[in-house]
Nucleic acid binder design. Structure first.
Length: 500
RNA sequence: GUCCCCUUCGUCUAGUGGUUAGGACAGCGGGUUUUCAUCCCGCCAACAGGGGUUCGACUCCCCUAGGGGAUGCCA
């Protein structure tokens, strides 16, 4: 039987790292085993589901380059792949369980249930309290229950969890897991009063109908696994293999959530993370592939993925390490591709005029030539515009002290700046080593280090002590502009020198 | 409260009875270098604790502790 796995998110929020991790592992497992990866939208919570989140889901995975073989947008033989479009199915299957005596109508209202829950809160100094539904409706005569339901009385359908005995299943990662039925959630709701299924029913019915062979989901689902097994048993179906993935935690050690910052994939994207880095990093959260390697492409991962290389313990999401991966992939990009990736960030940041302005022809070619200068200096794509701004507009004059090399003073800085500027017309800036050699010689004559000779010029040209390489910058900027900036800086230094 | 899962450097991990417990990120210290960065080299740093089993335990078993999760007409 060939492998069929699914990612079954509910569109009730933005896609975040946790979801991507689950999807990625399912995808990798399918690819590694020549199986199918299926997307199923679990939009059964009609108050929280929204189109906006569906769109975000598509955008996210489209960006990441993770594609499903079957799904709402691409179709497939087991559709529809949206649960709200399968509405009729669930009542039908729930009724089947009722008819078989495995489930029952429950007429308890929300008010009674919430009162019951708050009563169960452990009081100060009190011992064990029981939680969950008290099974009040379980013993209603079935004919009586049917009559009330048909009379229009609001109701849900609940699964009968056996009062005694145990339920066990074999988790592909965790091994044998056995539960006392008394510890399973007491008679969970299968069909809500609005006629929609709960996750539990929909997930079991659809996994069966869609012939899912392996369910890989986060470990937070372990407690509901026994109930699902009881359902498969009640339906007389063979359950899929289960594999509960370790959770991804925030730096505070808790389940990843909005509180942890930029966990929505969207935000990583706008901050300038590249997809390869995100995929590589997330794939390594809670799993390993081969020894001695850090960098894996999606294709590598798809080939190497194995369940027995997954870790059981939860993993903490580390932004710093992700940043390292990002730098690695940025540097690995070919210049042309990196330029295309950087361009939107430059446009948005207003590098070419007002934010949103496209580059002119000249700006475009300048930008292309400048990209190699920042490539090794980027952790995120979004950092590029600020680092290159001095090439596109004159930077504000730096404070005087910025110009002054260590242990020197303003007059000396002005002098070195003049020497450096005077040397420039004699340099062939397309030959960096030669230009550098000229400067080195001149620095020796002037009795200072090369760095000291370059620093005032660097600050004059780029507006900062920290900048991309200076000779290349000067070449891109052109001599006239550079000399003008140098002159302006000299004037400022002179003024500072004459003031006490 | 109850139930379940987990436990190797700060973090991600390798390890499947005999290793100086390896790698990566971070940190620290050097080197290359026109600044910054890249790159290179080095250092620091872990088997939660206690019992067993065994000639021998990070590896197997038990207990304790700690962490996490679940306990919804949300998924």
């Amino acid at each position: 039987m060939s492998v069929r796995v699914r990612y079954a998110p509910s569109p009730t929020g933005l896609q975040h790292i946790g979801g991507v991790r689950t999807a990625l592992f399912n995808y990798l497992f399918a690819r590694a085993n020549g199986g199918k990866f299926i997307l199923r939208l679990e939009d059964t919570d009609r108050t929280r589901s929204s189109e906006e989140y569906v769109k975000n889901l598509y955008d996210t995975f489209d960006w990441l380059g993770i594609r499903w073989d079957e799904g709402p947008d691409v179709g497939g033989p087991k559709g529809p792949y949206v649960q709200s479009e399968r509405f009729g199915l669930y009542r039908q299957y729930a009724e089947k369980l009722v008819a078989a005596g495995k489930a029952y109508y429950c007429f308890c209202g929300e008010d009674r249930l919430s009162r019951m829950r708050s009563d169960a809160e452990p009081e100060e100094g009190e011992g064990a309290a029981s939680y969950g539904y008290d099974r009040a409706c379980r013993n209603i005569e079935s004919a009586e229950a049917r009559r009330r339901a048909e009379a229009g009385e609001a109701h849900v359908i609940r699964l009968k969890i056996p009062l005694e005995g145990t339920t066990k299943f074999r988790d592909l990662l965790l091994g044998e897991i056995e539960w006392k039925n008394a510890d399973v959630s007491p008679d969970p709701v299968l069909l809500k009063s609005d006629g929609f299924p709960t996750y539990h029913l929909a997930n079991v019915v659809d996994d069966h109908l869609m012939e899912i062979t392996h369910v890989m989901r986060a470990q937070e689902w372990i407690p509901s696994a026994p109930m699902h097994m009881i359902m498969y048993e009640a339906f007389g179906w063979t359950p899929p293999s289960l594999c509960h993935l370790p959770m991804v935690l925030g730096s505070d050690g808790h389940k990843l959530s909005k509180r942890h910052g930029a966990t929505a994939v969207n935000e990583f994207r706008t901050k300038g993370y590249v997809k390869e880095a995100l995929i590589n990093y997330v794939a390594m959260l809670g799993a390993s592939y081969e020894d001695g390697r850090d960098l894996y492409s999606l294709e590598d991962l798809a080939r190497l993925f194995r369940i027995d290389r997954i870790n059981k313990a939860p993993a903490v999401f580390d932004y710093v390490k992700l940043e390292w991966f990002n730098g690695q992939y940025i540097r690995a990009k070919e210049d042309g591709e990196l330029t295309e990736m950087l361009l939107p960030f430059a446009v948005d940041a207003g590098l070419f005029g007002a934010p949103g302005t496209r580059p002119s022809g000249g700006q475009d070619s300048l930008f292309r030539s400048a990209v190699p200068l920042v490539k090794e200096r980027l952790s995120y794509l979004s950092e590029a515009p600020a680092k290159l701004a001095y090439l596109f507009s004159e930077p504000p004059l730096a404070p005087v002290e910025e110009f002054i090399p260590k242990k020197l003073d303003a007059p000396r800085a002005a002098e070195l700046l003049a020497i450096a500027a005077a040397l420039l017309p004699d340099c062939d800036l397309s030959d960096i080593p030669a230009s550098e050699e000229k400067f080195r010689t001149k620095a020796a004559e002037a009795g200072c280090k090369l760095g000291d000779l370059m620093m005032p010029l660097r600050v004059a040209v780029t507006g900062s002590r920290v900048s991309p390489p200076l000779f290349e910058s000067i070449r891109l900027l052109g001599l006239p502009a550079v000399l003008a900036r140098a002159a302006k800086a000299r004037a400022a230094l002179a003024a500072a020198g004459s003031a006490p």
